[in-house]
């Protein structure tokens, strides 16, 4: 299934420009005649993992975001725009990268799949998911990520019907893995139901919704920098109010900060990776690492 997100405000002249570019590129004949498999472009590391799992060796998956690039402020270079225009499929999640949304809206809708549908779909036991416009990190919920696998398999089957069975089989294999992952999460976090998850980046709304955690954001603390005493007092207030024993950062806290938090406030630090910018992401492994950090750091029973 694909989603038409083309906004009415995309100017006609610009569409014409893009059409000219597409025509120009196509005329160049850079693709081989027997065209092996579709070219797939993805907008975020988890979607790269997803597309690679579903497409296997049948497609060529490339990322819109350069390695180490910041997915939020991603600007679409002309080169990338041209690549997008000639790609067989663009997989993205709207709301994460405004520039990507805009560019994707200009790609033929049949060739763009917005997996946001997986974020907003009604699912069992999904809790109260966040507003994806504010927190689009739906891949942190393995069940929703499985839905996205289905969307990508559908889209690939549409652009490359000959290999439909292979796409669907691989998507199913991924869904099986995700079900195991979900089971592991449910089992490990069952005693932690209702626990407060304090994060320096409020990207874990989907995860919190699925596993019955209460996310609270800690703003203004950079894990690399020891904060001011005034900021530390705010952290202390949050720790006292929530009773947490761990603060989760996106990256490892600098030793100075970690010691300060441990000595002054008695809280530990841990890394929880929202997978926004992880290069060569191994989704399953990262989710397992995140789970270990949660099980160890949350205040749970027993």
């Amino acid at each position: 299934m694909t989603t038409d997100v083309r906004p009415a405000r995309a100017g006609r002249s610009f569409v014409a420009v893009l059409a000219a570019v597409v025509a120009g590129t196509a005329a160049c004949g850079t693709t081989t005649p027997d065209s092996p498999g579709p070219d797939v472009m993805v907008s975020a590391p988890p979607l790269a993992y997803l597309a690679e799992r579903v497409a296997g060796a049948d497609a060529d998956v490339t990322s819109l975001v350069p390695p180490g690039g910041d997915p939020h402020s991603q600007e679409i270079s002309p080169a990338t725009l041209a690549e997008m225009a000639s790609a067989d499929l663009v997989v993205y999640v709207s709301g994460l990268q405004p520039a990507v949304d805009e560019a994707a809206a200009l790609v033929a809708p049949s060739h763009a799949v917005d997996v946001l549908d997986a974020a907003t779909a009604a699912v069992a036991d999904g809790g109260e998911p966040p507003d994806p416009g504010r927190d689009p990190h739906f891949w942190l919920d393995p069940v929703r990520f499985g839905l996205a696998a289905g969307l990508v398999a559908d889209a690939l089957a549409e652009v490359d019907p000959d290999r439909e069975a292979r796409y669907r089989a691989r998507a199913q294999a991924l869904v099986d893995d995700l079900e195991l992952l979900d089971e592991a999460y449910r089992e490990a976090l069952a005693p932690c139901a209702g626990a407060v998850l304090v994060t320096s980046h409020e990207a874990f709304g989907y995860l919190a919704a699925r596993y019955d955690l209460e996310q609270q954001g800690l703003t203004g603390v950079d894990p690399a920098v020891e904060p001011s005493p005034a900021r530390l007092r705010e952290v202390r207030d949050l720790v006292l109010r929530t009773g947490v024993r761990t603060i989760f950062f996106e990256t490892a806290a600098a030793p100075g900060l970690a010691h300060r938090l441990a000595d002054d406030l008695g809280v530990g630090t841990a890394v929880l990776d929202p997978m926004e910018r992880t290069q060569d992401l191994d989704y399953l492994a990262t989710m397992r690492t995140n789970l270990d950090a949660l099980a160890e750091g949350l205040v749970c029973e027993g």
């Binding site: 610009f14 000219a20 570019v21 120009g24 080169a79 690549e83 225009a85």
Partner: peptide, 21 residues
């Protein structure tokens, strides 16, 4: 930004490799 990019795309729409745009 995107519109600016569009203009730039036109400039390199001939058969050049887009990677070095």
């Amino acid at each position: 930004r995107v519109l600016l990019s569009a203009a730039a795309v036109l400039a390199l729409a001939s058969c050049s490799t887009p990677a070095d745009g």
